[in-house]
Design a protein around this nucleic acid. Sequence first.
RNA 1: GCCGGUGUGAUGGAAUGGUAGACGUGACGGACUCAAAAUCCGUUGGUGGCGACACCGGGCGACACCGUGUGGGUUCGAGUCCCACCACCGGCACCA
Length: 813
Amino acid sequence: MKYDFTAIEKKWQQKWKEANAFHAVTGDATRPKFYGMVEFPYPSGNGLHVGHARPYTAMDVVARKKRMDGYNVLFPIGFDAFGLPTENFAIKNHIHPAIVTERNIKTFTSQLEMLGYSFDWDRVVDTTDPGYYKWTQWIFLQLFKHGLAYKTSMPVNWCTSCKCVLANEEVVNGVCERCGSEVVRKEKSQWMLKITEYAQKLIDGLDSVDYIDRVKTQQKNWIGRSTGAEVNFQTTEGDVLTVYTTRCDTLFGATYMVIAPEHAYVEKWKDKLTNYDEVAAYVRKAASKSDFERTELAKEKTGVRLEGVRAVNPVNGKEIPIFISDYVLATYGTGAIMAVPAHDTRDFEFAQVFGLPIIQVVASADGALVDLSKEAFTDVATGVMVNSGFITGLSVEEAKAAMIEYLEKNNIGHAKVNYKLRDWVFSRQRYWGEPIPIVKCDKCGYVALPESELPLLLPDVESYETTDDGESPLSAMTDWVNTTCPCCGGPAKRETDTMPQWAGSSWYFLRYMDPKNPDALASKEALDYWGQVDWYNGGMEHTTLHLLYSRFWNNFLHDIGVVPYAEPYYKRTSHGMILGEGGEKMSKSRGNVVNPNDIIDEYGADTMRTYIMFIGDFAKAAAWSSKAVAGCKRFLDRVWNLQEQCGQDDAYSPANEAAIHKAIKKVNEDIEAMKFNTAIATLMALTNDFYANGCTKGDVKALITMLSPVAPHLCEEMWENLGYAAEGMICQQKWPEYDESKTVAATVEVAIQVSGKLRASIQAPAEIDDAGVVALAMEDNRIQKQSEGKNLVKQIVVRGKDKKIKLVNLIFQ
RNA sequence: GCCGGUGUGAUGGAAUGGUAGACGUGACGGACUCAAAAUCCGUUGGUGGCGACACCGGGCGACACCGUGUGGGUUCGAGUCCCACCACCGGCACCA
């Protein structure tokens, strides 16, 4: 019988559909629930990429396995369809983006179906569907009503090519993440979301979830919590200049201060500065620099001394100069620092350039002064304070505490926590996104649209292009823009910016629970039943963007009582990239892109699935190998051919029994731990055993049951061919049971070491005791050779998890 | 610079501190075949001498030593743990 994968795969995809086999039942109390999720794709015109197939297949295997374990599984899919590529395609080809989106979704859907994924197709969400974005807008209004959405004029990242504002997260190495063009700073009025308000919650929440460590540390670093103090410096002009420092212990070593070029005091002190022209010139120059120039290119420290104003060090009363320099950021802390060149690398460099005094206040552990001629001394672990008045002699940690106490007592400062995290720039001057449901009234200011008017539909426009002055295409639609104020009834204008692509993906996991609900983002019943996403797998590149944003929204929704859990995802894992055949990134220009459709045509979806799971460690990058794909097809052929040569017995054959029980255990554990490659290796080895030993129908039944999450179509067909159709489809079967006692054969192989070196390997009865196995080992002639003329002084007997002896180590002297 | 990760045959990769290299690829040998493909069976980390078969070619067997980026250490025993270093990859990057 030939393995006609094309016909088989079509047949079973149809049967699963007819049987509604992967339907998730909201409210089913008879089974435990399992909610597994993959990142929904952006439906680009290029179609599905092999990069999608890896995480999707992995979660599909997990979902299928969980069903076999008796869970009520929710494994949904959807489309994150707003966004630039579609819009750019629409502009170029004069097609409405909605039509492009619909077409792309169709292509993606057929490709996903071809791969045999067990999604619940009744729960598909599409972020561009008004029934969906109604609730995206609704959540925005809740954020607005709770003061977490605000509009402000600020310098933003402006992509010169996309003519669009970018979030900090979308700027990579000074260029636009999407198109690679230069990003400059531009003053614009923008909607912002106060994610900073949730900085601490987003750190604390990580303690209650099971994310891989890489994700946790990256999120923590991104949020960038630091603890320190704010310190007030009096100035000779009677102002108070407040700085933030993490090293208040070094206050006695502060020999000058620096404020950011954007600091308000530059203007405030305008009349008092004798060199204001020079200062103003520096401020202008700093403002015109892009972030890229300000960081990457400006290695050498620059700045201007503010002549005419000086500050007073609050702990020793010394007058110190004040500078402006672009190495101090306006957006962090107070935009001003106290500079301690002896113990901060950047301050040290600046002091070198300007010839400023360097006073050592931290010495090495033994109290000896350190050489400061070349670099700052920044060791905080062992340092001891010197030249520091009342904190002299304390360790750095003790000094920090003592100093904060002193500052607070004397009212010149206090402990303070700061975060690197910035608020989220939420406006885009583009067409293909959710309209922001706000109107601006001259009398009432920014007013929320009544919730009854949601969804605020995206109107049709003549042109999808951003206007020349960088405004949204919607701004040209005067009919739409001009409206009345919901508050006072007077004339008002609609907001013309749209939301960023991250909006729709920040809550889609909630919509899957109840995707068609017109009255709420999801019913309380559905939210309570499905709770958290139990397992969410996705790319590392989303760690500081999508993953953080969606945690923020969900935390907020929890705070206002909409969802039952603060944290949306219980477990987060991440997959490695699929590289091209030569180990390089797949790209059109390199011509090494693998199209899943081609693999399916040549070998079938089951081979594609098996290979993509077998390719290597799931968490690591892996290079495509067409040879290895053929190897996986060979494996499936070998499995297929077993059905014609196996015996008719339903029981396991004695020759394979132990291996089968071991495999059941191993594959079970491996799937749970995402070690798909070794799970498949185990099944390959088992298949090899079947060929070597012969096998029964029962043996094959066990094999295909275990293989079915990975290669479902083939296994369904074999299941039917072997005559098990009456028991239902294989995807509805229970995972086979294993018996620990049967995983061991009657005799075991025991490795015999002498002083830790392997010298022999002997067969021993499985039930032998320690003394018996040592005696047996001593009889072996290879061991006798090693022990000649010596006495046995020590023996170590090692047993495996199954309590059977694995290894004996003998020490002779 | 800071944070995280990785380093194992020709190759993708396996190994709760316990027989390093599972499984796949490639290569080599054999069976089947007129032949090839496919399939099936076997071999495959390096080095060394030894034994016997055979003897112009060759394969066979048992054994020893070395071997998981480098150098140390802990341990009866280290790819795995600790210390120092090297290389590569990812993230952040003047965040005071």
